[in-house]
Amino acid sequence: MICINGVKIEKTSIKLSEYLSENNLSASRIAVELNGEILPKSKYDETMLKDGDVVEVVNFVGGG
């Protein structure tokens, strides 16, 4: 199970880049926290989320 933004997903692995594109999340507008640490942008493409991972994708929307 993988937990992304508080939602439990019954899978043992997901490609981060696939999750982002399926959810219409643009890499230039987000910050990704993986198990308590910020994931560097350069690792988005290669990162495979695995069983037990807890992920928060912060999506920045316009306005301020």
Binding site: S28, R29, A31, K41, F60, V61
Partner: peptide
């Protein structure tokens, strides 16, 4: 205000 600028600053500093 701009979402790209927000993400740039946050990621740059935290990385």
């Amino acid at each position: 205000d701009n979402p790209e600028a927000k993400a740039l600053l946050v990621n740059n500093l935290l990385e």
